[in-house]
Structures are given as structure tokens and as C-alpha cells.
Design a binder for these strands. Sequence first.
DNA 1: TTGTAAGCGTTATCAA
DNA 2: TTGATAACGCTTACAA
Lengths: 331, 331
Amino acid sequence: MVTMSDVARAVGVTPVTVSNVVNGRKGVSPDVRRRVQAELERSGYRLNVSARNLRVGRTGVIGLAVPELDSTYFGQLGTLITAAAAAKGYRVVVEETKARASRELAAIQLSEALDYDGLILSAARLPDADEPLTQLRRIPTVLLGERDLPQELDHIELANIDGTREATELLIARGCRKLAFVGRAPRDDAVFGGRREGFYAALSVAGLEAVTSVPLSTPDMTGGRRSAHQLCDDGPDVDGIVALTDAVAIGVIRGLADRGVRGPHDVKVVGFDDVPEASFMTPSLSTVAPDHVWTARRAVERLVARLEGGDHISGTEVAPFAIVERESTSV
Amino acid sequence: MVTMSDVARAVGVTPVTVSNVVNGRKGVSPDVRRRVQAELERSGYRLNVSARNLRVGRTGVIGLAVPELDSTYFGQLGTLITAAAAAKGYRVVVEETKARASRELAAIQLSEALDYDGLILSAARLPDADEPLTQLRRIPTVLLGERDLPQELDHIELANIDGTREATELLIARGCRKLAFVGRAPRDDAVFGGRREGFYAALSVAGLEAVTSVPLSTPDMTGGRRSAHQLCDDGPDVDGIVALTDAVAIGVIRGLADRGVRGPHDVKVVGFDDVPEASFMTPSLSTVAPDHVWTARRAVERLVARLEGGDHISGTEVAPFAIVERESTSV
DNA sequence: TTGTAAGCGTTATCAA
DNA sequence: TTGATAACGCTTACAA
């Protein structure tokens, strides 16, 4: 391994001068700079960032922990946060937690292990115990998630209740009267409780009763498809479905098609997230579209404000959203 | 910031003993261990990994550079590589290069900057110049990509020619005679040349002429949709389409639907990649399915072998693949 | 413009 | 079982 001292010795200067060249600082004569640069090239020198970080006490890296990478929702989040962070001079590394609470904790510990300056944690199902929150206080963190959290934590959440309520209202406005919610968690009912709450709120205002609330084995396309099969096989008559997420909705639409049920004529469906593929499905998917760009920018802003010690607010903010109507709810 | 020295002073031992406790090494009396642990807890001590890495000379982190994160193809790749690396005791951080050659270079430099032990680079369009390859020689790297590369580099590629040839043969076997390829790059024809080559090879064997090769503005769903519109508006009669990737194919199917063309009755379509959503589309998508698990495992294996200095092979390997037939090519 | 000295927090080595 | 010492590669502060 080539160090600055090696390069310095070869050129006949001190390590400090080499450091100045490597970091593009001024105060180095053109001649020396040139000779140092030549030797850096020649020797294949690589900066040891552990050493630099040890010295300067920060890494300029923000960690982003997401439950899964193979969904466009979290992929897009990664893309947007990376861009927002780059604008502020930070780099982002993405960690996958696999949505298991223990892995979310592991991500937090990892962030310590990797010496991230800060962490953005998309916490699908952080356990209620205090212990993880204690962990979170050890490293500057912004949470993106669904859960009610103590006010002193930085937290950005989606408009789960209002968004799902308006999505449900859209179905009702389009003539649906026999509505089902696909998204009951198998065990922990608190997870995604907000979306369910919004669904029931809309029904209650309209004076309707839910036909059913279908359990969801996993909150993804496969789970949605399975739930749709179950719904068809159990036989309750349904003309509108509110799905927990777009991925679930895509699975539901496909699962209905498997049973010969065609949307939007037979059953209308809405999702949540507005993933990139929503407008490419057949039928294209009506959905709650949170402002992902806003969310990403705000998460980074708040984290950086905290990192750089300026004024920063705590507590929960809710991302703005819009209802996007496409073919899956057309009359 | 609490250091080992701080903890040591508080307990009345030396930093070395604290280090031993933190790292779970033996040779520390139960009593001392307990007291040190208590103080670690109490003080909120956090290991400074920059210091450790400086000392031990490695980081245990593998970088994965992919063109984009908001596609399930690369998302899945990230998931699988993360899992394969974890099995070998390495962690993975994912970097987004945005598919621009300059960013792929930036990723390489970044990997140096972050002190990854090694890098897996999914190089969509690495430039031909030698310079980047010189860069690659500075850090242990495995390339996942489409390009012909010098033999001394570790390289895993997909069966672009054979895969696309077989996919095209499937269309022909299902009765298609008027075939189009959607995936001509706007400028650089060398990119993804292999897939085009496979398409033409199948045609030639069957004694057919291609109806057209449609340019693709961007290799994603949006580009595919646009190309399909163009194809419909230009009017050539087509009964089978080979798309560059599944994402493009999904866009193509939707673009055809926009113009009232229904698959698979009117036009059959095949893609490449077997992304998770391929089986959830309507119609579900026939495609070339590379063995992603094999690819991820092999990439990690080869990188780790290189890192740990054992025997390692160089050169190019090709991932196995299968043709998966679904509804988009049914008769 | 360049050099000297010191230290960032950790761990390896050797001695007690 | 514990401690003293040195060193990893780099940057900051200050002196020349």
C-alpha cells in the first residue's frame, strides 16, 4: 500500500505537501504540484479514507435504510434521496433491512459501524419497545415511516389516514358500494393502521359498511394476488378494493384477472404510493401519490440541519399528497 | 465523543482492556469485563470505526454500483448480492451511477474514497477508453455487464446473444413472421449490441427479414411506450416484438394498448431479465430469465476470492438462463 | 511556499 | 490477566 509518506519521499517533499496536492489546496508551487501528481499517478496511490475520517471526525456519508430494494417504491426513494443529499454535499449508501424489526435495528447499529454521519430510516415496523429508540438517539436520524413516534424524533410520515380516506371516497364517487380493504396484517394490526383507519373513516361518512378486510400475507405483489384469490374464492360480492400499497394493488388486479374478474368494469381498485409502473399497468392504477420529491428533499434537509448543528425542528411532518385517477377506477 | 480512553479512565483500566471487552476477546476477568461493560453502557460509547479500519487495514464492505435504483432489475440484484455477501461476512453498500459513464467512473473513485474492500460494478456503458480500466485495476472489482472486456478483468455477463436468439425463436415458433426489435440505442449502437445480434441471428436461421429495429430513447418503461407509439404511428405491420429488457417490454405492451393493439392476440412480445413484476402484468410477460441468484453468488464469490488472496479466476463467465413463457406469447 | 510536530481512536506486540 | 508503548495514514497548527 502506497502512503503519502511514500510519495513524499519519492518526490523529496514532506507528507503535508502531498496532502495539499491530493486535496487540491493552494499554496503549492506548480512545479512541486506537477511532480507530486506524477508520482501519485505512477505509484497508484490511493487515499486512505479511514485515516482521513479519523482525523477530521466525519465521513460525509448518510445511510439510508429501507426494508427492501427490489420494489420500485423504495428504489425510487433511494434515487431521490441520493439526489437530494448530493445537492448538499453528502453521499448516500443504501442498506436493506428486509423489513424485519431486528434488521432495522441492525441497520442502525451498522450505521454506527460504518460511521455514517447520519441515518435516514424507513421504518416499516419498528417495535414499540424503547430500546431501539434509545439506539436512534445515538446517531442523528430522520425516520420515514408509518408509525406514531415520540415528538423529539425527526419524523416524516405519509398521509396514511387522509390519503386512504380520499382514495376510498374516489371509489364511492365512482359508484362503488361494496368495498373491501386489502391490507390487514397477519399479526400486528398496528402496522399500517392509519391506512385502514382512513378506509373506515370514508365508509362511515358515506354510511356504508365494509364488506370485508382481507388479510395480507406479505405487503407486496405476491401477497396482493393471494388476497385477491382468497377474496374471490370466499365469494363476498365486492365492487371496489382499497389496497395497502400499489404493489399490493398490482397483485390484486392480477389476482382478480386470474379468476376472470375484470377491472375496472367489475371491480375498481386504488393503491397507495404512485410507483413508476402504476401508469404502465393495464388497467393503469389510480392511487394516492405522496410527493416523493418533497419527502426526499425534506428528509435530507432535516438531517443535514441536525448534522451541521444549525437550527432544526423536531417532531412529525406529513408529506403532501394528491389523488391520481387512472383507468382502474374509471366508470 | 466518548473514546475507549475515557471509558478506561472511568473504570481504572487501560484502553487495551476496554478494546478487549468491546471486541469480546477473552483474557479479561469477569469482574473487569462487567465493570467496563457497565461504563460502556452508561457513557453511550460508540466505536470509532474509522480508527479501527485505519488500524486493521480493511473495512469489510463491498460496494455495488448500479446504473439506477428505481428499477426492480437492479433492485433485485442489490438484494441478492447483499445476501450473498452477508453469507461471506461482508456488507454491501449500493451506489447509483445513473448509467452515465462519468458516473460509473465516479462510482469507482467513490469506492476508493469510501474505502470499500472491493467493488461490484454493473457497467451498462463503460467507455472504451483505457483510462477507466486503469482505474478498475486499483481496486478489486468484478464487472457485471454487457460489454466485451479484457480477459484479465473479472467479468460476469448475461447470455445476451443466445438468450435473445432463443426468445426470438419462441416468437417464431408461436407463429410470428413480422418481427421488430425495440432497443436500438439512439447513438451508441455498440451498447446492448449482443441482444440485437441474437435477434438477427434467429431471423436469419428462420429465413426471415426484420420488419424494423425501433430506436429507444431510454431503456426503460417510458422509452418502450414511446417506441411502441412510434411503431404504431409509422404503420409497419408487426406481429412479434423483441424488447431490449422487461422494463422496455412493459412499456411496449402499454404503448400498444394505448393504440388499441392487444397482445398477445395482435402482437406477441418478449422481454429480457425476468423482473419480479413480469408475472403480474396483463398479459404476463414471456422473457429471458437469467439466473440472478447464480449471478449474485458468483460475483460475490469471485470478488471475495480475490480479496482474500486465494486462488481466483479471471476473465468472463456467462450466467445461465432459461426462457420463461407466459401469456404475452400465447397463441 | 515548505517543513516540523502532534494527535485523531484504535489495536498489536511485548512485557509485567 | 493487565499494562505500557508504538503505530496505522492522515491533517491541523504553527514555524521556518
